[in-house]
Simulated assay, not measured.
Amino acid sequence: MAKVGVVLLNLGGPERIQDVGPFLYNLFADPEIIRLPNPALQKPLAWLISSLRAGKSQAAYRSIGGGSPLRRITEQQARELQSNLRQRGIEATSYVAMRYWHPFTESAVADIKADGIDEVVVLPLYPHFSISTSGSSFRELQRLRQSDPAFARLPIRCIRSYYDDPGYVGAMAELIAREIRACPNPAEAHVFFSAHGVPKSYVEEAGDPYQREIETCAQLIMDKLAQDLGHPNPFTLAYQSRVGPVEWLKP
């Protein structure tokens, strides 16, 4: 039986307060996060932004316990996915590949080669595709394949997005329905979706499907809620986390 490596892609996050500055630098040094006409400016700008934002970001991380829980949660997901696949008779081993903090993608690739994996399936933990999230991680994997003949020989399949998968939509609807039923007037409960934004130019000029996938997903979830609850609910979709002077998705 083939040994399958399942790579879970995620953003990564600083686990300690002293990691915040270097994490922000790695984030903004990625040209898919901030696109500049002159690549030589990327690292100086990343240093400037990370230096200016470090204090505010450190305060935010202190408010949630001193660091990001993302690695712990992602590694738990990886273990449970691996267990589930093995119960189904698939010889699978899961790996976590963070884009901007440990464990980095290079570490996952090294473990895949050491374990003698025969083929690789790549699962982004971003349900909606964007050039700045899944796209950036896919490109990092491609860069490593181009520089590593042993890794390049492994068959690899990438799950692009799953924003409209019935299982995902149903899981989101189930979580929301639980809260709607707890409201004094369930039929009047207003559902508010908050999605991480991207620069408007990504959508209009680079063809990023992110906005379309987010909006379609929100509507599919609301349709499933109406079906499960027996009544429609009002909802709003908004975007957050703007960076820099360029226009980002609204509202």
Rank of each mutant, 00 (worst) to 15 (best):
G66F: 09
E174R: 15
E80D: 06
T74N: 01
C217F: 15
N84V: 14
A218E: 14
V122R: 02
P103C: 03
L225R: 09
C183T: 13
R157N: 12
R178H: 12
M1I: 02
C217D: 14
S107G: 10
R62Y: 08
I156W: 15
F129K: 00
H190C: 08
E174T: 15
S137L: 05
L125Q: 12
L52W: 12
A173D: 13
S107D: 13
D19T: 00
H196M: 07
E32C: 06
K250F: 15
I33S: 03
R62Q: 09
N10G: 01
R242D: 03
F23I: 00
G197W: 06
G5N: 03
F104C: 00
A29G: 01
A97H: 07
I90P: 11
R139D: 08
P245S: 04
I64C: 10
A171G: 12
S137Q: 03
H231L: 14
R72S: 10
V120Y: 13
S132R: 00
A78N: 05
G21N: 11
R62H: 08
R157Q: 13
I180R: 10
Y163A: 07
G167P: 08
P251R: 10
S132F: 02
D208K: 03
Q58T: 10
A187K: 14
P166H: 05
G65T: 02
A187I: 11
A218L: 14
P31A: 07
A2H: 10
A171H: 15
N10D: 05
G207H: 00
